[in-house]
Simulated assay, not measured.
Amino acid sequence: MTTIIRSKDFTASRPWGALDIACMQGISTRLHWTDKAYHWHVNDGEEVFVVLDGQVEMKYRDANGETSTLLSCGDIFFASTGTEHCAHPVGEARILVIEKHGSV
């Protein structure tokens, strides 16, 4: 089976609504749409967060304290296991998230 997804056309009925694209060997790939911030959280595995459309202010905490960076279209954020983080879109955003299946 082949699937083409036009990420710019994807919207959801609620913030952080997702389209499940694939689950390969326990790793999920999901397309999210949002216009609201996600809460502070820690995943139980690694996470790759790719901004496909819009901008997202990514806040994260590590040994150096709290940091914030603005991610634009094409930017990638990698959170290692145990990294506390919180995503705040600037308006609408579409994000590809690759993480352990069933993770937060």
Rank of each mutant, 00 (worst) to 15 (best):
T2Y: 09
T2E: 12
I5P: 02
K8F: 12
K8G: 12
D9I: 06
F10N: 06
F10M: 03
S13V: 00
P15C: 09
W16G: 09
W16M: 13
G17N: 09
G17E: 05
A18Y: 13
L19D: 07
I21Q: 03
C23N: 15
M24I: 09
M24H: 10
S28W: 02
R30G: 01
L31W: 06
L31Y: 07
T34K: 05
T34S: 15
D35Q: 11
D35I: 04
A37M: 08
A37Q: 13
Y38E: 06
H39E: 12
H41C: 00
H41K: 09
V42C: 14
V42T: 15
N43V: 03
G45K: 05
G45V: 01
F49V: 00
F49E: 02
D53F: 08
M58D: 06
M58P: 04
D62Y: 03
G65Q: 04
T67H: 15
S68D: 11
S68G: 14
S68R: 15
S68A: 15
T69R: 14
L70E: 10
L70T: 15
C73N: 15
D75K: 04
F77V: 07
F78S: 05
S80F: 00
H88C: 09
G91M: 07
L96R: 04
I98N: 00
E99W: 00
H101M: 02
S103D: 03
V104E: 11
V104A: 09
V104T: 13
